Each structure stands twice: as structure tokens, then as C-alpha cells.
Amino acid sequence: MFGRRRKRGRHSAGGVDAGLENDEFLDDAEGPWDSTVAPKDDVQRLDLGSVLLPMPDEAQLQVEMDQQTGAVRAVHILTPVGQLTVSAFAAPKSGGLWKEVGAELIVGLKEDGARINRENGEWGEEITARNQGVQILFVGIDGPRWMLRGVAAGPEEHFAQNAEALREMIRGTVVVRGEQPMPPRTPLPVELPEAIARQIQQG
């Protein structure tokens, strides 16, 4: 479905240590990577400015726009088995933002009536929610001054395939944090490739 599969690395042990430099956060043979240590490989990635995403086969893009500002809020990847969304946010140098965000996410999902499951995954804690035939996987990774959040949503019967598609996308993702200071939790800006932006304007 994607480019080269990479073996599992140190992320399988959980989160990251506080106060580490970029190459100490993400020094594996698999991603996600900070742009300062990203590999020079042959994987084709969709350039969204703050994130570079490897695209699965038979994928379509769904762009979510802010109606007031006209800015791109999110880009969703639609596949035959569900929807994938990978977003990057500013985070403290010490890391640990996903633990806070995940706890808040669980509270909100329970209030919506979802059944929650928490388990240790490839990069630390993963959260699964089930509600009215839909199953959603939330994955978070703390990087150097950024946090990456991946979401796979779709019918319960396709959950395993959809979840693996998300993990494979995350393994090949590159995050471009930039040097500008941002408050923690600020979404890193999403920029569409010129051809896609032109299609949206014409539409």
C-alpha cells in the first residue's frame, strides 16, 4: 500500500525523554522524523508544508477549510476502508504533550457516549473509540518541539486495515516544525500544493 516498510525501532518502548535534542528524539530507521534528521529516500510524499505524508494507493484528498479565514484547517486522506488524518502541533521542548491531549480526548469521547480502549502501541499510548458502528484510532507522538497526531476513522469491520494504514503513514511522515516560536498546541500551518489549491479555487 505504501513505500518501503521499516522495522520497528525504539518508539515501541513508549514516549520520549524530556530535554532531548532533535537527533535524540527521532534517531531510528523509521519515522515519524523531524525534518532536520529526515532520511533521503525514494518515498513519494505529499507536501503539506508542516507535514510530508506518504500516500496510500487509491487515496483521495478531502480538504477542510476555515470558512472565516480561508485557511486550511486539515487535510483528510480518504481510502476504500476509511479516513486518515495526520496533523502536527507546536509542543514544549520537554515533550509530553500527547499525554495531556490524550487525557482530555478521552474525557470528551466518553461524554459523547463512546466506548474507550487504551493500550500501548508502537509510539506509546493509543486510544480507540467505538460509537454507533464507527471505530476511531488516535495515535500521538511527541517530537522535538512538535506533537504529531494521527486519526483513523471508519466502519468497525475495516478497523484493523484502517489502523495499519495510519501506522504505516506515520512511519513515513516528516514534520517541518520551523524555527518560529509558537504556544504549545498551536496547529502547525498546512499549505496545499499549488495544483491542489488551484483545483479548490476553481471548484
Rank of each mutant, 00 (worst) to 15 (best):
residue 140 G to C: 03
residue 11 H to D: 15
residue 193 P to M: 03
residue 143 G to T: 09
residue 183 P to L: 12
residue 147 M to D: 01
residue 27 D to N: 15
residue 128 T to M: 09
residue 38 A to K: 01
residue 94 S to W: 08
residue 85 T to E: 15
residue 75 V to Y: 04
residue 98 W to D: 14
residue 191 E to A: 14
residue 59 A to V: 10
residue 171 R to T: 13
residue 121 G to D: 08
residue 179 E to N: 13
residue 158 H to E: 13
residue 200 I to V: 07
residue 64 E to V: 14
residue 183 P to T: 07
residue 128 T to A: 10
residue 110 K to D: 12
residue 131 N to S: 15
residue 171 R to M: 12
residue 146 W to N: 13
residue 74 A to L: 05
residue 130 R to G: 09
residue 39 P to N: 02
residue 150 G to Q: 05
residue 75 V to G: 04
residue 110 K to R: 15
residue 161 Q to M: 11
residue 9 G to Q: 11
residue 43 V to D: 15
residue 113 G to W: 06
residue 154 G to N: 06
residue 66 D to M: 00
residue 155 P to D: 11
residue 190 V to F: 08
residue 155 P to V: 04
residue 43 V to F: 03
residue 157 E to Q: 13
residue 191 E to D: 13
residue 41 D to H: 07
residue 185 R to K: 11
residue 138 F to N: 05
residue 35 S to P: 00
residue 61 L to G: 05
residue 147 M to Y: 00
residue 53 L to Y: 04
residue 161 Q to L: 13
residue 155 P to F: 07
residue 101 V to L: 12
residue 96 G to S: 02
residue 142 D to S: 05
residue 184 P to V: 07
residue 79 T to A: 03
residue 90 A to Y: 02
residue 143 G to F: 04
residue 14 G to R: 06
residue 184 P to T: 05
residue 173 T to Q: 10
residue 24 E to G: 05
